[in-house]
């Protein structure tokens, strides 16, 4: 077992540097250490100026996504020993502007998430006093997978369509839209379809499928988008073939 491993960490200090460059750090390579532990070791013992986001260290808050040897990963769930003998190259998530070191700018995603109306839309709300909406385990299962998104943005980093066209709504936001569309309590599909059937919505996706490969929570955004395309086409045919009012 190697004692240490080298991390090639992308550094970018906007106040003094024009562009990012790599800096090497030698860190202990302990069997239970993840990449994030190594970064914290650097911050605590070697260079306090290294900047990165992290919080829960259990793969659920979605803060610590970075490129590890070119692949988008949650660094709290990526073990150093899987990369022996090293070096390991750590970069900020692809396809996003870099704020500093390993920190990306992600407000674009926040705007897009809000844009797809990720909340329950009802024609008429049931008063709380009347109890819960009934939802069978099967109905729950229909959308559950798409509700597991932790907004870690690994899928955006893996998506070449988003890399080439920042207007593309992107995998996570589209999957979350589909999560609400499929929820038996929701009646907002028509509203969302208007937004999602624009060019930068579902039709922007060319089904590279990489988003689903890198998703740490097995959300399968690519699947969500294709299912949505199928639905949109069916709706379109219905609107052509059926007289007004015959549609549901």
């Amino acid at each position: 077992m190697a004692e240490t491993i080298v991390l090639e960490v992308a550094r970018y200090r906007p106040e003094i540097e024009a562009e990012p460059a790599f800096e090497n750090f030698e860190v202990p390579c302990r069997p239970d250490w993840v990449v994030l532990d190594a970064l914290n070791y650097i911050k605590d013992a070697i260079d306090g100026t290294l900047s990165f986001r992290w919080s829960c260290r259990m793969g659920v808050c979605g803060s610590c996504g970075m490129m590890v040897n070119g692949e988008p990963k949650l660094t709290c769930a990526t073990f150093l020993t899987d990369y022996l003998p090293g070096p390991i190259r750590i970069e900020p998530l692809s396809n996003f502007p870099i704020v500093r070191d390993l920190i990306i700018e992600m407000s674009d995603f926040m705007t897009k998430l809000q844009g797809v109306k990720p909340w329950i839309i009802r024609n008429e709300d049931l008063p709380v006093s009347q109890g819960e909406y009934r939802q069978s385990p099967e109905q729950l299962e229909t959308y559950k997978q798409f509700s597991m998104c932790i907004n870690c943005l690994l899928c955006y980093a893996a998506c070449p369509v988003y890399g080439l066209d920042q207007h593309f709504v992107g995998p996570a936001a589209l999957a979350l839209a589909q999560r609400y569309n499929l929820d038996s309590r929701d009646e907002g599909e028509a509203q969302r379809l208007e937004i999602l059937s624009e060019h930068e919505g579902i039709w922007g996706c060319t089904f590279v499928g990489e988003c689903s490969v890198v998703c740490p929570k097995h959300v399968d955004p690519a699947g969500a988008i294709q299912q949505y395309k199928l639905k949109a086409v069916t709706e379109w045919f219905k609107s052509i073939l059926l007289p007004r009012g015959g549609r549901d």
Binding site: P14, P20, G70, P97, I98, V99, P160, G163, L164, E210
Partner: peptide, 16 residues
């Protein structure tokens, strides 16, 4: 803030 935007290579599809 001075964000750094990485250009996307024309040959991105050879990366993986």
């Amino acid at each position: 803030p001075k964000w750094y935007r990485r250009p996307m290579s024309t040959y991105w599809w050879t990366k993986r």
